[in-house]
Simulated assay, not measured.
Amino acid sequence: MIVTDTPTLYLSIYIIAFLIGLPNAVLAFFCCIRKIRSKPLPIDIIMLNLVISDLFFLTFLPVKMKEAADNMFWNMPYILCHLNLFLFLMPLYGSSQFLAAISTERYVCVAFPVKYKNPRRITYTILICIAIWMFILVTAVFTHRVAYGGSDNGTVPQLCYTNFTHVQLQNLLKMRLAFVAAFFCIPLIICCFCYINTIRILLKLPLIKRCRRLRAIGLALGTLLVFALCFGPFNASHIVGYITQDDPKWRMHTLTFNTLNACFDVIIFHCISYEMRLAFKVCAKGFIQFYVRIKSFFKCCCRT
């Protein structure tokens, strides 16, 4: 039974994530492309892949808005429900992989600066990103076969990725437990190890500028914020589901808040990319000037 106010909450969160995440993701995408064309670095390539993952997710988000507006019934072509797994769930899993890759790259940059300048690192980084995408794709295809294989999709109104047979649910619960290890625990451990050691090294170097240290701390806190608030509850639902052998009733709540990952990624983009910070300042300055002009225009209209 779906609570009447719940879809409204989902729709509100989807709209917030879309309005905040999409402009920043598009801005970060063009900044990454511009930087890679001029002077590519491994961090730019990884960040570009993280941005692409967010764009896949944000492009599909209006479909989830329509689902929430229809009281969580699937009144759209069912092919979109199949794409839900590939363009909504898997990009969220992929984000944790790319965040772990970013933390590793930052640690290598600080701990091994000589090896970091090796020109082959660009090739290695590209191969790592390709491997991550292949891992995500294979996982999505295998999950799709388990979730939709042999199911009856002819019922109207339909529910998308919530109504499973007993066998399907049992197999999914096992897979989700494996996802907790592969897409949450291991990336979280990697991020914690890399950022703790990165910050520790930067604090010991007297010639490092204070702003660089603050950006490293901000990057670490932003990443941990994503894992704690976005990925944590969702993966906790997988563990609870495996223990109880059933989908927790609050699982959809955690999945919805998981979408805020696209908003928090803005912190990571800002800490990593100088071009992103510069573009953000230009956009903010233009917005303030536009606001001042509009305000002055209305004042003049009121006086006349």
Rank of each mutant, 00 (worst) to 15 (best):
V292M: 12
N49Y: 03
I199W: 09
F57G: 03
T198E: 03
V167F: 10
L255T: 04
F264R: 07
S95H: 11
L159I: 09
I189L: 14
I15G: 00
T139N: 15
F142N: 10
L137F: 15
R293D: 07
N261F: 12
L159G: 06
L172I: 14
V108T: 13
F227I: 03
I20N: 06
V240S: 03
A17Q: 08
A216M: 00
L207G: 00
N153H: 14
F269P: 07
Y274W: 02
L225N: 13
R293G: 02
L173A: 07
N197P: 05
G232Q: 05
F234E: 06
Y107K: 11
F112T: 10
F287I: 12
N49M: 06
G150M: 11
I288W: 07
M1P: 12
M1E: 05
F298S: 11
G149D: 08
Q245H: 09
L203I: 09
N153S: 12
K115I: 02
T254F: 14
T143F: 13
G286I: 05
C263P: 08
N118I: 06
F184H: 04
I190L: 07
L219P: 00
F297K: 14
L224R: 00
Y291P: 01
Q97R: 14
S237M: 14
S237Q: 14
S12G: 12
H270C: 07
I208C: 03
F56P: 05
Y107F: 15
L83G: 04
T8C: 02
T123G: 02
K35L: 10
L260H: 05
K66P: 00
V282F: 06
R121Q: 07
L159E: 03
W133K: 10
M65F: 11
I128E: 04
F164D: 04
A236W: 11
Q170A: 15
N261C: 03
P157C: 13
G286Y: 03
P62H: 11
A111D: 11
F86A: 15
I201S: 09
L278S: 12
A220G: 13
